[in-house]
């Protein structure tokens, strides 16, 4: 196994780009960008988006997802190694 898939989503609520939407934010927000990321290579296996994002907002949501994927990936690795971050 060369990598693990991390799924993260960012979106927009009241014109503010945010990471990790909850249900209400997803339902009533203005945009949603879920991505499936391979954190080691930075490649993408999944990409979907709905709503209205300017190019700048889109870039920001994309960067949030890439950053969050690294954090989640570290936690996944920790958990597999015996749970230092548990």
């Amino acid at each position: 196994m060369t990598d693990m898939v991390v799924s993260v989503a960012s979106g927009k609520i009241n014109d503010i780009v945010v990471c990790d939407l909850n249900k209400e934010e997803d339902n009533y927000g203005e945009a949603d960008l879920p991505m499936g990321i391979l954190p080691n290579s930075g490649e993408l296996v999944f990409l979907q988006m709905d709503g209205d994002l300017s190019q700048e907002e889109f870039k920001q949501a994309w960067d949030y997802n890439m950053e969050a994927a690294q954090v989640v990936h570290e936690m996944m690795v920790d958990a597999l190694k015996g749970g230092e971050s548990q």
Partner: peptide, 28 residues
């Protein structure tokens, strides 16, 4: 395949990836 829908002012309205495959941020 990747489908992109853009509105006026280049706003992104929908993105969809179809079929199996991996792509890089640079390609996108």
């Amino acid at each position: 395949r990747i489908h992109i829908t853009l509105g006026d002012d280049d706003n992104v309205h929908s993105l969809q990836k179809g079929l199996k495959g991996i792509f890089t941020a640079d390609e996108f």
